[in-house]
């Protein structure tokens, strides 16, 4: 089996729980214990109230498409040649955060703003799971 040859996340002290959650097929978000806001991307301090007290909670996995693009010309070409056309979207989660992702399980031509989507976990390699979304 050939090694996974696409960009892979380098988890850090802030993001490691998020990626570990994905590996377990759980979409985890930080909720601030100071002000109650969810935040994404992961960070030690809440940008709304500066509290560093937070807990990781499992998100519903439900959201809507805020905006999307369809990549037709692959860059880098050798990495994405077999994947185009593919859709990248910003999805607004029910918890009030916005997440970059791929929309799969749907011809990109049918993606619309506000479309309801739900998380689906793509085990792209033995080590990495990416949270993608499909029409709900």
């Amino acid at each position: 089996m050939t090694a996974y040859q696409k960009p892979v996340p380098a988890p850090d002290a802030d993001s490691a729980p998020f990626w570990r959650g994905c590996r377990e097929h759980r979409l985890l978000l930080q909720q601030c214990k100071g002000c109650g806001k969810f935040r994404f991307p992961a960070a030690q301090f809440c940008p709304a109230c500066r509290s560093d007290a937070a807990e990781w909670l499992e998100a519903s996995g439900r959201g809507t498409v805020y905006s999307w693009i369809v990549v037709v010309h692959p860059v880098p070409g050798d990495i994405y040649r077999d994947d185009v056309p593919y859709a990248v979207a910003l999805v607004d989660l029910e918890e009030g955060v916005r997440m970059p992702t791929n929309i799969i399980g749907c011809d990109p031509r049918y993606i619309r703003a506000g479309m309801a989507v739900t998380v689906t976990f793509d085990d792209v390699s033995a080590e990495l799971t990416l949270p993608k979304f499909r029409p709900a």
Binding site: P7, A10, P11, S67, I69
Partner: peptide
Amino acid sequence: ELAAHGITQYTAPFGWITYPQAMAMWCRR
């Protein structure tokens, strides 16, 4: 690089890499 550090860890793994790809998202909106 293939190892996506910092904020890029949330974008590049989804094949969202170039500036045209970044700004197309704004244009669409």
